[in-house]
């Protein structure tokens, strides 16, 4: 017990020194970008590209921190909510961040009010594809065939509540079909069953689906962006494929805990804007089938509110189970 006194004293003396050092210039130590999933997925990959570019342009240290406890990214996001809002702990997440609380009422935070929106970073459409053995060449023909023989068709998603799941639910509602969607754990096994003809329709990001479309193992029926994607110019939009227009992007953004230190927020916002608007970032994202999608803090906040409402409507229309 003897040693505690001096230790406390030195801490007390050191504390004001440390805090003034922090106040001088924002990133005086490494900034941790929390990715609430294990390494290797698309969220992690885009986060790593962003972190590397941020480090290069600012000369500061940005570290990707995988906090994967829990299957849906809630644990990692909650750690960011509970962190000090000094700008050293950020959250990098995808559209699922907004969808999860709509499906699971027990999520311990409010997506709109418990975070500070920093910047939108990237977005990409999904490819809706079917095995080559399917006769239909457009979504219109496909859903006509489903209507005629509903038991011969199955729909898949790489994860419950993913952008792809919502896209399919939305199409089903338009076509007036109520077959449930089969959920998989990840794009790998789902695509395997799609190529093998076990299931007949899936909407999935370009990164995992486009190579199979190019090799002819899958037949693309549509992309889920408002206009055709430059990465797959031959694939029509949902409207061109004969269904009511649909835009369903998989998108990525950076958040901080609520009441983020304004100085840190301004610094991060500038640094991220510079990276996202660069050609190099654009080139690096192309590989993943994504494009830069810059949104400043206000735009991102409005976007989250709009998307949340839109997803809630699809979930209601598709009659998805809400816990």
């Amino acid at each position: 017990m003897k040693r505690v006194g001096p230790l406390l004293l030195s801490l007390l003396l050191a504390a004001p020194v440390a805090s003034t050092a922090l106040a001088q210039e924002f990133p005086s130590r490494p900034v941790s970008i929390v990715v609430p999933f294990p390494p290797g997925g698309s969220v992690d990959s885009v986060a790593r590209v962003l972190a590397a570019e941020l480090a290069e342009t600012t000369g500061k240290v940005f570290v990707v921190d995988n906090r994967a406890g829990g299957g849906n990214g809630v644990v990692g996001a909650n750690e960011v909510v509970k962190s000090t809002p000094d700008g050293y702990t950020l959250l990098f997440n995808a559209s699922i961040h907004v969808v999860t609380p709509l499906l699971n009422k027990k999520v311990p935070f409010d997506v709109i009010n418990d975070f500070t929106s920093i910047a939108g970073v990237a977005a990409g459409p999904l490819i809706i594809s079917t095995p080559p053995s399917t006769k239909a060449n457009t979504l219109k023909e496909f859903f006509a065939a489903v209507k005629a023989d509903p038991d011969s068709f199955n729909f898949a998603t790489s994860g419950y509540g993913s952008a792809g799941h919502l896209a399919i639910e939305s199409l089903k509602a338009q076509a007036g079909i109520d077959t449930d969607v089969v959920s998989y754990k990840g794009a790998g096994p789902a695509l395997s069953d799609l190529m093998g003809g076990q299931v007949q329709l899936m909407a999935d990001p370009m990164m995992s689906s486009l190579p199979h479309v190019k090799s002819g193992r899958l037949k693309a029926l549509a992309v889920t962006s408002a206009t055709r994607s430059p990465l797959a110019p031959n694939v029509p939009t949902v409207a061109e494929s004969g269904m009511p227009a649909l835009e369903m992007l998989s998108w990525y953004a950076v958040w901080g805990p609520k009441n983020l230190d304004p100085k840190a927020a301004a610094y991060l916002s500038d640094a991220i804007a510079k990276v996202v608007k660069s050609d190099k970032f654009k080139d690096k994202l192309t590989v993943f089938g994504f494009e830069p999608m810059y949104k400043n803090s206000t735009e991102l906040q409005a976007f989250v509110v709009d998307e949340s409402k839109r997803y809630a409507d699809i979930i209601k229309a598709g009659n998805l189970k809400v816990e």
Binding site: G69, G71, N72, V75, L103, K106, K321, E323
Partner: peptide
């Protein structure tokens, strides 16, 4: 259905 099972209400167990 993404329903949590046997998680004792702990977020860490949902995965």
């Amino acid at each position: 259905t993404a329903e949590p099972r046997f998680t004792l209400g702990l977020d860490e167990m949902t995965g």
